[in-house]
């Protein structure tokens, strides 16, 4: 798991890079993302990761959900 800000910055960074890879005919002005996450409240703040699935032990973390609304800057 990693801090919430790392996941958000990484996610937006990769999306931004992929959208300008070719000749863009359309402009993206807004972006809504909704994804399941594994979350842990810890010090300091929220630690998250993409769902890792059921581990070999059979213990599964309950999935939370994160929604992001972004606008182009």
């Amino acid at each position: 798991m990693r801090p919430l800000e790392d996941l958000v910055i990484g996610l937006l960074g990769e999306l931004s890079a992929s959208m300008v890879a070719g000749e863009a005919a359309l402009e993206v002005t807004a972006l809504d993302i909704s994804l399941p996450i594994e979350a842990r409240i810890g010090g300091p703040g929220l630690w998250v990761s993409a769902p890792r699935g059921v581990m070999r032990t059979g213990f599964v973390m309950p999935h939370s959900r994160m929604r992001l609304r972004c606008a182009s800057a």
């Binding site: 939370s64 994160m66 929604r67």
Partner: peptide, 26 residues
């Protein structure tokens, strides 16, 4: 702060975060 820094470095497209919501199992 990180997204603002990216925008200042001249990237052709970047996003600003408007809203974030999370549903946590607590």
């Amino acid at each position: 702060d990180a997204l603002a820094l990216k925008a200042r470095t001249g990237r052709p497209l970047t996003f600003a975060l408007k809203d974030l919501s999370v549903d946590l199992k607590v």
